[in-house]
Amino acid sequence: MEVLDSGIGRLFHVPDPDGHRAYIRDNKPRALVEKVMTEQEAVSRFVSDGDYLCFDCNMVMRGPSSLFREVIRQRKKNLAVGGRFTYIIVNLLVGAGCVNHIDVGFIGVGSALTRVLDNGDITVTEWSNSALTMRQLAGALGIPFIPVRFLGGTGAFQYSAAKLVKDPWTEKEITLLPALNPDIALIHVHQCDVYGNARIFGPSVSPWETAAASKKLIISTEEIIDTEYIRRDPGKTTIPYYLVDAVVEAPFGAHPGEVQGLYDSDQRAVMELLQAGREPTGEGLKQYLEKYVYGVANHQEYLEQRIGLERLLALKKEAKIKEGYYL
């Protein structure tokens, strides 16, 4: 296949479908074993310094916010982040010193990001939201690359690690994206059993591709349900158990974000987080992290000591749309 053009961006994970298969063979538990553990244990066991981290949704929409906070609390270092479809979390992870590379789909920009971009402290490779999601699909299919009909011709292509080739069948130009098999994925779900059979209700970004492409997967869940309910209604299962390494019970785990059908986003908390991220000296973000992340031992303390029952119950009340969720 003739390569006509190549992006000059740095490719963090060179696709290795056979290596990935061997990892799955040797490391993923196929047995029906209980995986429930605390967030401390899950993040400490499965998130390593230098990992490529990805996630479904973001900090305002059914994202794994409590797990993000734990990653920061444990001061993970040198993470690469699939920065897709996010307003807040990339800036927060960067501000906490956890990140040294960002693949850009869409990232909300705050002062921490602006600073490291100016300094050249972290490397950035350009993609788009769907480019990163299609890369995950290729990873989930166990293939080395995927052709797509977008990205070509732009600066986003030029600063990516994509290639333009001549398709051997049609003999027309086509863009190839390298597969992405992240080291670790974090996904927050509505319901999950102790083995990891997980249910997401409502729209999402790419829970399947994110789960199936990744080497390690931590699920946080609003509630743990009995496996009997899973078996009675298997059509509701989004992610089957053997993709999952850890199950963390985290009610209000998406806070300050929303979990559709269950609780609304906490706009006051979202604004506080956004403002902290934009404050130019970096002091605002530091104070935010001290108060909401380092200053509490875990998610339960975050909820009890920083947010409070009254606000949480109000958020449940504000989630007035129930159609399409749970039932």
Binding site: G83, F85, V104, G105, F106, I107, G108, V109, L113, T114, L117, D118, G120, E126, W127, S128, N129, S130, A131, R149, F150, L151, G152, T154, A156
Partner: peptide, 18 residues
């Protein structure tokens, strides 16, 4: 060394492409 960095191509690239 961007003067001012914004969010990125996001979903606009795929919309404008396809």
């Amino acid at each position: 060394h961007p003067g001012r960095r914004y969010g990125g191509a996001g979903g606009a690239n795929e919309i404008a492409s396809m």
